[in-house]
Design a protein around this nucleic acid. Structure first.
Lengths: 205, 205
DNA sequence: GGAAATTTTGCACCAACTGCAAGTTTTCTA
DNA sequence: TAGAAAACTTGCAGTTGGTGCAAAATTTCC
């Protein structure tokens, strides 16, 4: 009853995961990924430093590994849904379908969030990954709808969707009581949907 | 007729600017900032490598120096306008008031844009600076309107505004013919204003 | 069982970045 | 204006990140 993939493939996936986990664990221990060396991560995972760098170009990439995997799932969901839904709804539903809250432990998500926001390096890397996500999503939308990816409209639409996703996630992680992540996402998308630009005015007395 | 600030301050500003310019010039020469060493930038500006790192923590920061200065201006504009305008309009008008197209040479802006989009490192750093801009803008809005910066609404609003700004800039730089940057910005903000989420649907035949 | 393909690892190397202390330059004050 | 105080520049040593290369170890496939 071996896995379909050979031993080699399974081992590679295992070490990659082990390295990512090690990065996460050590960062939580030290309170910051910046305080963790690539050497330490490799040692924790039981491989050489050189091997660590065969798998990840940097410790930040290792730390964000499964976040990065999720963007793959998100894009796959988008690709599928965009064929028979408005782009906006397709993106929202793909976010919800990720089922983040059931996939990960809440306290661990909170921990990761804090570690990211405490490390300038991690903020940059995560932002960079968002940029890639944006670019790929733009390609998908352009393919599906025939719009020019150079146009402002699809960029604005997708940018807003990304903002909605990120905002909803952050907000729910910081304040998970009383509603599901799916509800938070729905709320964020609905807020933009009904025209976000008006309401927040200054309170002239 | 000396500057109000002493010689020392002027010299510091001059070297900082020289270093930034050197980074830009060398990156354009080599076709990529990644191919330029900190040593080379320091040499080009006529200071030691160590001094370079006294001014900038990385070559990326040096490259993005004036971009970063602009965010200061943008935030100042926002702080001022938000007292008597809707946040949305205040942000848009602050963007326009930056007067980017008159402040910089178009071909140089195009060059910078290309260099950034060809360097994963620069993309990350720029994205990181956007994050900081976002955070500071959020604080300003929270102060001015009394909204909680934890709420989703101001985050969504400001996120959308940032997206609009970035999209308009990119679009105008890639396609400056026939209209001013201010018009492009106005258009982008107007597109979101009138509800961006609906129009782009798939074209079921 | 053993050759071929792939992975792991050590090693050498370059580049980024920082702390520290000594040397320079600017500023301030008497 | 001399000269002390403050601030800036620089070189040096050291840590870390990251890559290319070739040898050793492992897995795969016939």
């Amino acid at each position: 009853m071996e896995d379909v993939r050979g031993l080699r493939e399974r081992k590679k996936a295992a070490t990659k995961s082990a390295l990512s986990q090690a990065a996460l664990r050590l960062a939580m221990e030290k309170g910051s990924l910046d305080a963790v060396t690539a050497d330490a991560i490799a040692a924790e995972a039981g491989v050489s430093t050189r091997t660590f760098h065969n798998y990840f170009p940097s410790k930040e990439e290792a730390f964000l590994y499964d976040f990065n995997e999720l963007t793959g799932l998100l894009l796959a969901g988008l690709r599928e849904r965009v064929a028979h839904q408005r782009v906006w709804d397709a993106f929202r539903d793909s976010c919800i379908a990720l089922d983040l809250d059931n996939r990960f432990d809440l306290t661990q998500m909170q921990c990761r969030e804090e570690l990211i926001h405490n490390s300038p390096q991690l903020i940059k890397y995560q932002a960079g990954q968002f940029m890639e996500l944006f670019k790929e999503a733009l390609g998908i939308v352009a393919d599906a709808t025939g719009t020019d990816p150079q146009d402002m409209l699809p960029k604005l639409l997708l940018g807003n969707a990304l903002i909605a996703m990120k905002t909803a996630n952050e907000h729910w992680i910081a304040n998970p009581a009383g509603r599901t992540l799916a509800e938070a996402i729905t709320e964020a998308f609905a807020l933009i949907d009904q025209g976000i630009t008006g309401p927040t005015t200054t309170s002239h007395s």
